[in-house]
Amino acid sequence: MTSTIVTALLFDGLFAAGAAIGFCLISNPQRNAIPICALLAAIGHALRYWLTHYFELDIATASFIAAFSIGLLSIIFAKLIRCPAEVFSFPSLLPMIPGMYAYKTILGLVKFLKNTESDVAVNILLDVFKNGTTATFILFALVVGVAIPIFIFHKQSFSVTRNKLVGK
């Protein structure tokens, strides 16, 4: 039983890492940040998978916890490699962006517009509302989750790009 969970988590992490590399390359990341982004994305996404599948947590709360751990880890790596924590945390969040919920909301609205039967329309409306709120909640959960560690370690995270610490 536990081995199936472990393999499921490993595979989820592996594919999330692949997705993160692909999506962050569009935004031209620093070369040395790419492997770390992949690692953080794998950890974050696998954590979310674990929470939603084995703890039956809702996806927004799970995203929040995943993003929070990505934020913490990215601050640690930011200190080690000396670049802003966002360099790691942003691309690692990309696989968790609720893209499909977002465009399904729009498609549902179009479907609602075309529909003429009122009992079907209620179901479509429910779908639209469900997809829309899920997308919004995940998005907020991701950003707030990643930002909280940065607020906690305020001073460190703003000055990591500094080369030497000069007394002012």
Binding site: A16, A17, G18, G22, F23, N28, R31, M100
Partner: peptide, 23 residues
Amino acid sequence: PRISKWIVLPLVAVGNACFCRIF
């Protein structure tokens, strides 16, 4: 220079394929 677009192109495709597996 940006990362060569001939490297980005296949990796984005692989990334999106991985995403398909997640879903």
